[in-house]
């Protein structure tokens, strides 16, 4: 308590001007947050039905309780809910386990591969007495996580290759990379998703039907790759010319130079923009609503259409924002941690 007082004196009330600014801001905060707090907690309706909610003045938390499972898991059959829940738990635990760079080994990579297979198996079923759940029924949080995770896993290496192609000396590869990046960056993601859902099937040989989910996933990977490429390119040009020359002078060939010397430094430099792009993409996956995939945002919208529960959109969107926020904030914190882990004593 005394520490808090000292901190406040030092940081908030050190000079008369500082005190005045602090007081004004605290006042504004109370003005703004007070009613929100009232609405969300004190006056909120915790029990009852839609009717009780409509009579109450505060937030309708009953609605969230009622729709919680639907928003998180969409149309996934209720009796098999443990499967997506277990999948998410496994996924989050494995992500948490892999957070330390010293654990980025081949073994961890194998574990991830096995985990991905296990998750697909859990979600889809159809073997060993597990009832099959069709892909159209997947929805909510698992779908959002899957679209962004797979999107990231594929687009990061593709982005690196595109960036290398763009900065390299092979004219043909360079032209293709530049063309690809500029073309994809030049169109909105929505149009790419539309193309993926409407036009891909036209290009594919007859008889092969890719599930809509896969088509959307492809579009997301294509889109994300172009952005990642530009982020990585920034890193490549931020690494000093001397590093390239030293590697050349030692006789390293192009791939050795890039893999051992340039990329480790470049990718480290661009950790913040990389995570920034990843967070952006995590939220952008919600655009798949336009091709009627029931991701987290779509399940939220659908739950709002329930005739019994019309008119609680503020609660619904706040709830789904909270879920998005938890994941985005974790990514952002993780980015800070990574930067510190890769900080090698001093700078040249």
């Amino acid at each position: 308590m005394e520490g808090l007082a000292r901190w406040m004196k030092k940081n908030l009330f050190s000079t008369p001007l500082n005190s005045a600014v602090s007081l004004v801001l605290i006042g504004v905060l109370f003005q703004a947050l007070g009613p929100l707090f009232d609405w969300l907690f004190l006056k909120a309706t915790w029990e009852g039905t839609a009717q009780t909610c409509r009579h109450g003045e505060g937030a309708c938390l009953v609605f969230i309780k009622e729709k919680f499972i639907f928003i998180l898991f969409g149309f996934y059959p209720r009796e098999h809910l443990w499967r997506p829940i277990l999948s998410i738990i496994l996924f989050v635990s494995m992500s948490f386990y892999s957070r330390k760079p010293e654990r980025w080994t081949r073994r961890t990579l194998w574990r991830w591969l096995k985990l991905c297979l296990l998750i697909v198996f859990l979600m889809k079923g159809g073997f060993f007495g597990f009832e099959e759940v069709s892909i159209d029924k997947w929805g909510g949080l698992p779908l959002t996580l899957m679209l962004s995770f797979i999107g990231l896993v594929f687009s990061y290496p593709i982005g690196i290759l595109l960036a290398l192609g763009r900065t390299g000396h092979l004219p043909f590869v360079k032209a293709i990379s530049v063309g690809y990046i500029e073309l994809i960056r030049g169109v909105p993601m929505i149009s790419l998703l539309f193309m993926a859902s409407v036009m891909f099937p036209l290009f594919l040989p007859e008889g092969i039907v890719l599930p809509k989910l896969l088509r959307a996933q492809t579009a997301i990977i294509m889109f994300m790759s172009a952005y990642m490429a530009e982020v990585v390119r920034g890193g490549l040009s931020a690494v000093g010319k001397g590093q390239y020359e030293a590697a050349d002078a030692l006789g390293l060939n192009y791939w050795q130079k890039m893999l051992k010397i340039i990329l480790p430094q470049a990718l480290k430099i661009v950790i913040p923009p990389t995570v920034n792009t990843a967070i952006g993409m995590f939220k952008d996956t919600s655009l798949v609503v336009i091709i009627a995939l029931s991701d987290l945002l779509m399940t939220t919208k659908t739950s709002l259409k329930d005739p019994k529960w019309l008119g609680f959109s503020v609660e619904a969107y706040l709830f789904v924002s909270l879920i998005y926020f938890i994941f985005c904030f974790s990514m952002s914190r993780y980015s800070r941690q990574l930067e510190e882990e890769f900080h090698y004593g001093g700078r040249l």
Partner: peptide, 14 residues
Amino acid sequence: EVGMVFQHFNLFPH
């Protein structure tokens, strides 16, 4: 066959 030493050392910082 040819080694080179640079003005700014160019060691690999990572």
